[in-house]
Design a protein around this nucleic acid. Structure first.
Length: 462
RNA sequence: UCCCCUGUAGCUCAGUUGGCAGAGCAAGUGGCUGUUAACCACUGGGUCCGUGGUUCAAAUCCGCGCGGGGGAGCCA
């Protein structure tokens, strides 16, 4: 059996085919009944036409049971469509209702639903145009990620999801345990983690970076792409408690190499979306965010601007009246600052580099000035920060000093420090939030609508 | 964690100064010479989020609770 994407692509008119899928809509006229069949293989459905005058009684009965959402098998002849709207259609001769879908209780109707409502029926929402298209785009973008790195000789490394070290202090962590918390609560005594599964405290990973650096120092060019967990109490359209992150790491590389990789990567992903997902992208353009395609197209053809943090702050200080938080050297760039830089100052993507060391993580390479580190953030219009990365500190003594300055115990990072003791080399990498990329590409505002089952504060249903 | 908005039919929302619960879409029925989120007509459909209070009278005003959304912070 061919899926609808194949049927529509082949257009083998005159052939007899059976298509299986679900009814999106049924439209009645006196002489003909139209059923739009979709199977998820592509955005467009297959129009099935039933001749009211010549259909069998069995088909008429099945048609009466056909409602929005019903699972169907339709057999007929593929013909050129006499009407506008679709090049071919299925002139149906037989219809089987595989699974009924009672119209009076089925939550999805042939009308537009709000994304808020659809979140409450996450098990049914992939059947809608918007969420279905987002799901196909998610698949394509994941494939594009692997294609990009594989074609460049990067090795895909699976870093652990469970970790016993508070890696980079990148955020609040979820603790994992097999201890009986109810029993411990009854006793009221201190918790003995030596009796826990790993013999010590364990958490879900907030980043694969530290682990992937070990393989970077062995395989040269590596990346991770996996789930990441942050237990932060944040309730926004761009945060999840469980999200997917891509983290490449390249050996014998410095910050300019890292920036070049990030730019190539973003452009590869945008090109993939625009060139290979045009049908779904056309839907996002039409129904989700008009202007989306032109905006993405301009980004992929434009050289990313570069700017140091110091220059960025100087630029922001010229317009300080337009900000709630007044910018000054040493301040963390607020969302309003980031968007102003990319949207107003540059009018496109901009990479901001060389941030004050106090603002960034311990593993970033210290500059000669002793005040800034070789960090980079890629800022894009509408979204703000989409990539954060840096050249890593590969000098043992400087790294240890950085850790101490940030109140970290070097002994806890003994294996990470070993990378600097044995054959250390400059290396760099970055992290890209996969769902943030999907927000950017699809135009869907809320991050909870670009992941099948969102996990956020007080939200772990389905 | 902080600030703001919001909760009324299956969905999206209106509801005036506190005075009989409304519309569009969806559903059901009928019509329509090929429809494209079809169209036209009719019909059915309500714990006004919950709870306590003010009042002759509360969807409407007040307190508390719960849910949803947006923004900030944190970050990817």
């Amino acid at each position: 059996m061919k899926d609808i994407k194949t049927i529509l692509a082949e257009r083998s008119t005159g052939s007899t085919i059976t298509a299986k899928g679900w009814a999106r809509t049924k439209r009645d006229t006196k002489n003909a009944i139209f059923v739009e069949l979709y199977d998820g293989s592509c955005f467009t459905g297959l129009q099935c036409v039933f001749d009211a005058g010549s259909m069998s009684e069995a088909t008429a009965t099945a048609l009466a049971r056909t409602t929005t959402g019903a699972a169907l098998a339709v057999t007929g002849t593929l013909v050129d469509s006499p009407a506008a709207g679709q090049p071919v259609e299925l002139k149906a001769t037989a219809l089987e209702v595989i699974g009924e879908c009672p119209a009076d209780s089925y939550p999805l109707q042939k009308k537009a639903h709000s994304l808020e409502f659809l979140r409450e029926i996450a098990h049914l929402r992939p059947r809608t145009n918007t969420i279905g298209a987002a799901a196909r785009m998610r698949d394509e973008m994941a494939y594009a990620v692997h294609t990009f790195y594989h074609d460049r000789g990067f090795k895909y490394v699976h870093t652990p999801i469970i970790t016993a070290s508070d890696c980079e202090g990148a955020g609040e962590m979820f603790q994992t345990t097999t201890l009986d918390l109810d029993a411990i609560a009854k006793h009221g005594g201190p918790v003995d983690y030596s009796k826990d599964f790993f013999g010590k405290k364990a958490f879900l990973s907030v980043s694969g970076q530290l682990n992937v650096e070990t393989y970077c120092m062995a395989l040269g060019k590596v990346y991770t792409f996996g789930p990441t967990f942050r237990a932060e109490n944040s309730n926004t359209t761009r945060h999840l408690a469980e999200f997917w992150m891509i983290e490449p790491e390249i050996a014998f590389a410095e910050l300019p190499d890292d920036m070049e990789l990030a730019e190539d990567f973003v452009k590869h992903l945008l090109s993939w979306a625009l060139d290979k997902c045009s049908e779904d992208m056309a839907f996002f353009e039409k129904r989700v965010q008009p202007g989306l395609i032109e905006m993405l197209d301009s980004v992929r053809s434009k050289k990313f601007a570069h700017m140091t943090y110091t220059d960025a702050v100087a630029e922001l200080e010229k317009h300080k009246d337009s900000f709630e938080f007044k910018p000054f050297w040493g301040c963390d760039l607020q969302t309003e600052h980031e968007r102003y830089l990319s949207e107003t100052v540059i009018g496109g993507p901009v990479i901001v580099t060389d941030y004050p060391k106090e603002l960034k993580a311990f593993y970033m390479r210290l500059n000669e000035d002793g005040k800034t580190v070789r960090a980079m953030d890629v800022l894009v219009p509408r979204i703000g920060e989409i990539i954060g990365g840096s050249e890593r500190e590969y000098r043992y003594d400087v790294l240890v000093a950085n850790m101490k300055a940030k109140g970290l115990d070097p002994a806890a990072y003994w294996w990470y420090l070993d990378l600097r003791r044995f054959g250390s080399a400059p290396h760099a990498g970055f992290g890209l939030g996969f769902e943030r990329l999907l927000r950017y590409v699809t135009g869907i505002e809320n991050i909870r609508d670009v992941i099948p089952f969102p996990r956020a504060v007080k939200q772990a249903d389905f």
